[in-house]
Every structure is written in C-alpha cells, then in structure tokens.
Design a protein around this nucleic acid. Structure first.
Lengths: 183, 183
DNA sequence: AGAAACATGTAATCGGTTACATGATTAT
DNA sequence: ATAATCATGTAACCGATTACATGTTTCT
C-alpha cells in the first residue's frame, strides 16, 4: 500500500490535532496542495477508519448551529504506525496535464483558441505562484518552507517556458492557414 | 467528461495508426509520458469501446507466434469526435509527489535515510532529464518538441532546487541529534 | 539460462470523485 | 440578496490499476 488518504491524514495529524475540515483546507491553501490533494468524500471516511483502528482519537467540541467540531489527534499507536509508513519508498513524482495534451494538437486549433488556452493557463500559473510567494505570516515548519520553495521554482520554470516558447506553436498555427493560400 | 483514456487514445491515433502496444509505449518512452499515463488494462478496453462506437477501426495483421497485431486508425466520425473533445477546457495541471510528502517529516527521519531518499530522487530526475534531452533521431511533431522542452525545463528546475536546498532539511536533521547535546 | 521485448486481453478490486443532504453565520 | 465559510457526513458510480493468463523471439 502506497501513500493513500489515510496515510496523508495520519501525517498531517502528526503535525498537530485538526478537524476533517481543517485537513481539507491544507490542500486548498498553502504549499501542501501543490503536491497533494484529497476530497471530503475521502477524508471523512479515512478519519472514521483511523479512529476504528485506534490510530487516532477524537475530541468533540459542541457548537451552536454548526455540526460539532471533531478534533482528531494521533494516539501512540498512530504515531508508531506513521513512523512505519514513513519508511516506505515513495512512488515516482508525477506531473499530469490535460493542457499539454491539448497543445499536442495545437496545429489543428483555431489560432485564437490556442492563444486563449495559453493565456488562461499562464494566468492560472501566475496566480498559483503569487499564492505561494506571499510569505506565510507565521513561517511554517522547515518542511512546509521547503515545499513552498519547490513549488515556486517549478511554477517559475513553467511560466518562463510558456512565455518564451508559445510562439513556436502559435506561429505554426498561423501558417496552417497561411494568408497567401486563402486566395 | 474530462480527458480520459478513450480521449487520449483517440488523440494519439489522430497522429497516425497504431496498435495498443504502441500506444502504451508512448507513455514509457518519449516526452508524452512526462504528462500522461495509461496502463494496458485501460488501453485495450478503451480501444474496444472506441471500435464498437465506430470512432476507430482496426486492421488485423497476422503474425507467427505472437498474437495478431491490431492496427487501429481513426474513422471520419472519430476524427470529428476528437475535434470536439479538443474544445473542452483542460482541467488544472497537477503535480503529485509522495516524495515531498515524506520530506514534510524530514525532521523525524534518520539523517542517512533522508540523504538516501534525496539522492535517489535526484538520480531519478537526472535519468528522466537525460532521457528527454537526448534528441529524437527523427524530430517529432512541433507539439512533441514543445512537450519535450517543457519537461526539460521543469526537471532542470527541480534538480537545481533539490541540489541547492537539500541542506536546509539535512542540517536540521543533524541538529535534531546535535553532537554537543549528546554529552 | 534468463530477461526483455513483442503482443493482446480479462477480471477483481479499490480508492476516490462527485453529487447529495443539512444548516447557521458572516461578509460583500 | 448572494456568496462564501464553517462543518460533517453518505452513497452511487466509475475509471483505472494490478494481477493474471499465454506464448514466441531475441538479446545478454
């Protein structure tokens, strides 16, 4: 078994007690979402199983209106289990991009659509970069800072590459319907 | 429906006829595997469905010993369907890394294990980079070249980041059992 | 002798996404 | 008013991975 949502929850809880909702936030804000993701539909059941197995325990905080907060924290057995999980050798890093898949066929796209596609992706990456770059008020752990730097380095590389090489695809798209051939 | 294996097969077949085996090779060699992946268990059924739907067709080449080669190619309807699929807006690019997840807990790792982890990952990235860098004999399509450049840019950024920042995690790992505290 | 490449396929299993269900409070 | 944030959970569905099944040829 590789690194699934259960292990991720275990890991994040080893950094401190948290609710399912807070765990989810980790993937949406901050550098962790740069290389990990999990949905509520995966997190809540994982937390349930982990509790059944005695690897985490849960303190319930009543709230008015909202559902009770369930703050989970690692048990000793959970700590041990996680120390164990830390020894697995990590699978390969993977970059997945539907965007690049589409660009594979840039030549068969209307030039304006192609340009729009690249513009949007660039906007997206610039936003992600800015998000990572704005330093956290309270600097997180060493690990988190390292992830942040990693993300920044990669996003910068991608933005730079896109900016300086888009013309390769775009001039070709023009040439596929060259002006002098439309006569 | 986003970009699933069926669409990927359709796209790769739009570049020329191929067998399931050849489609799979695309993900293992060459720049396409940099941002896409699919297993035989996904490709063969996808090819079957696509054939049933009349989007691709199959020419069977008998062979001795080996199973027959089934060379698939797009039909006109398939070409139209793919042109359609090209219009969807691509989901976000995602980078997933179990490796970075582990590094999140670098402080709780034996220093030699941490160093080994990073060494291995660096080796892996250098190999991938070399693989991308060795220019294809027959330069592929513009699109492929673009992907190649993208991968090279990203891998270089990651390697450089890892090389120049690993000490941040590693000196800390040392300090967790500092020499002067062991007295 | 053994591994790797060539070549296609099936089936069990599974992890996870998406959508649904509920509902108060606070910010725009 | 409307959207967003807070807060937890269930269930259907699904795509895909993994392992299995089979067998030859060629490279090391």
């Amino acid at each position: 078994m590789a690194i699934d949502v259960r292990t991720i929850c275990l890991g994040l809880l080893s950094l401190g007690p948290a609710t399912g909702y807070e765990i989810k936030k980790n993937f949406e804000e901050g550098p962790i979402g740069y290389f990990l993701e999990a949905s509520f539909g995966a997190i809540y059941p994982a937390l349930g199983r982990l509790t059944d197995e005695g690897l985490i325990e849960c303190r319930i905080e009543a709230q008015d209106g909202k559902p009770d907060r369930k703050v989970y924290s690692l048990t000793d057995r959970g700590r041990a289990a996680f120390a164990d999980a830390l020894r697995v050798d990590p699978g390969p890093d993977r970059f997945r991009s539907e965007f690049l898949f589409l660009l594979l066929f840039a030549e068969h796209m209307p030039p304006d659509h192609l340009a729009h596609l690249i513009d949007e992706r660039l906007r997206d990456y610039r936003a992600r970069l800015k998000e990572l770059e704005r330093a956290p008020c309270r600097p997180g752990s060493l690990g988190i800072e390292f992830m942040r730097g990693h993300g920044i380095a990669v996003y910068r590389a991608i933005i730079q590459y896109l900016e300086s090489n888009r013309h390769v695809l775009e001039t070709r798209a023009d040439r596929s319907v060259p002006a002098h051939a439309a006569e």
